[in-house]
Nucleic acid binder design. Structure first.
Lengths: 192, 192
DNA sequence: ACCTGAACACCGTTCAAGT
DNA sequence: ACCTGAACACCGTTCAAGT
């Protein structure tokens, strides 16, 4: 864990990376990583930034590396592998969209997918989660291919739902209606 | 239909709006609507832009209006209502993701959903498509609530799949594998 | 009526000069 | 070793001046 200076003292590259990740988390995608506004917020000059980083791309790279590391930690906190698969799937359906919405960085990064570094980060994070989902459906007794299909279906559904919730507020069911929606989705997924 | 001047003559507001829509379609979201680069491409100066529009926001507004109009036309071209619902659902699953991918504007606009005008356009386009899907499941005999749930499930799934295809190329099944994936999804949607 | 060109603000980038 | 401040390029915006 790198040391940070909370006070007015000199800054480290980690301070800049942390600030950039914070800007990313406020939504708005890569455009939110802007050197001059960050410098102003940190009480320094943009000139000082270029001592720690070659350019804005390097700062974006550092912010994405941190973001990806945190998303990896989140998989470790996924529903325990000791519980029954259907119960884990239920829990996952209820929490997945919320997890994505709690991190505005991820959803807005899809808008910057043309950036190779963003695409690579999304690819790794997605692959890790898909692997978890596929394993879950394997445990439910599906064949390898069917488990992959179901995992992908769940993931695409959660991602689409999160994108809709963020972009088109008020469109998705809420409260009790939302719980019935998830029950309906769950029933379709475990029907044979 | 407004008249356009292909040649070097004077420009109209419609010429600017069309150029802005073109930039939007090349992906990159609202950031692609940049006055100076557009002016350069159109062989004029950015000063001339401000005769036709109050500011960049007004140009964004005009481009989104045009985009939304075209997406409305697309619903009219949806699978014929005369065919059997299951056949239409099959066709729709096969074409929906492709339709979204053929219009990079839409997918990248999700990254700009914080812009109120973008959110409004996405909301209207989404609501129209959801209505079509819900009607389809009503015809399949589902209750009103179940038809809404299934429509939403299909839409979220297609949107998520399109976002994944665009952002994480190579992750989704292709060719015969993709057809089997869609068959698997279809089966889950019309089960029992 | 429509356009040009110069001006200014903002942000990315460079760099000479400071401590 | 780390930072400031001035300089320049780029794009949004304004506007006086042209045709």
């Amino acid at each position: 864990m790198p040391q940070r200076r909370g006070g007015r003292g000199r800054l480290t590259a980690e301070d800049w990376a942390e600030a950039a990740l914070g800007a990313l988390r406020e939504g708005g995608g890569l455009a939110a990583i802007a050197i001059e506004p960050l410098a102003a917020r940190m009480g320094t000059t943009k000139g000082s930034f270029y001592w720690h980083f070659a350019n804005r791309e390097a700062l974006i790279d550092a912010a994405l590396t941190r973001w990806e590391r945190q998303r990896a930690d989140e998989v470790a906190a996924a529903p325990s592998r000791r519980r029954e698969p259907v119960a884990r799937l239920t829990e996952l359906l209820r929490s997945a969209t919320e997890t994505m919405l709690n991190d505005p960085a991820e959803l807005s990064l899809y808008g910057d997918a043309a950036h190779p570094r963003v695409a690579a980060a999304l690819r790794r994070v997605t692959a890790r989660r898909l692997e978890y989902l596929t394993e879950l459906f394997r445990e439910l007794g599906l064949t390898e291919a069917e488990a992959r299909y179901r995992g992908l279906q769940v993931y695409a559904g959660c991602l689409g739902r999160a994108q809709l919730a963020r972009a088109v507020p008020g469109l998705l069911p809420r409260g009790e209606d939302d719980r019935r929606y998830l029950d309906s989705v769950l029933a379709s997924l475990v029907a044979h």
